[in-house]
């Protein structure tokens, strides 16, 4: 099962490598990983999407909690949550294709953020599933380059992950 684990950790050099190292050392899977400082510059927020059964996810959260740099963490997928990922994608857009790309982009509420006579560069946010669907709709032969940010997530409602 796919999980989104959100981690608050000390914004220290080496902290990220400890988290990433833990996943490779213990054979856990990383689907995507995002990390950046929070409003408190001493803290970083890391979001990792991973796949595993309950046993694996339990160990992942316990082992992450054992890392001295990890302050707090939550498995967002245990409750209601929002999930967003951003994609920047270069698409062949010439001739008749050009209008079709624009239409598809509108349907998915993407924005064309750069244009050349043969290419549209599109920015789109949403769940990972939505981004996958957009790439499928465009079609592999038209896609020139894909950059995905990895998943960021936050709990719905009043639950807050903070120190």
């Amino acid at each position: 099962m796919r999980r989104i684990i959100s981690v608050l950790m000390e914004n220290e050099p080496g902290a990220l490598s400890r988290v990433v190292g833990l996943f490779s050392q213990r054979g856990y899977n990383i689907e995507s990983l995002t990390v950046a400082p929070t409003e408190d510059s001493t803290l970083s927020r890391l979001t990792v999407t991973t796949i595993g059964d309950d046993i694996v996810i339990e160990q992942i959260t316990k082992q992450l909690n054992k890392l001295i740099d990890v302050v707090k963490l939550v498995d967002l997928t245990e409750g209601e949550h929002l999930e967003r990922e951003l994609i920047l994608i270069k698409i062949k857009a010439s001739g008749a294709q050009r209008a079709e790309v624009k239409r598809t982009c509108d349907i998915f509420r993407g924005q064309i953020v750069d244009v050349t006579p043969a290419i549209y560069t599109v920015q789109l946010t949403g769940t990972s599933d939505k981004l996958d669907a957009f790439i499928d709709a465009i079609g592999a032969s038209a896609v020139l380059e894909v950059v995905r940010s990895g998943v960021s997530g936050i709990a719905r409602g009043e639950r807050v992950l903070s120190v």
């Binding site: 046993i55 339990e58 160990q59 316990k62 082992q63 909690n65 054992k66």
Partner: peptide
């Protein structure tokens, strides 16, 4: 003392 040792191998 280590929560990660509990239910790690024997469930």
């Amino acid at each position: 003392i280590d929560p990660a040792s509990i239910q790690k191998t024997v469930r």
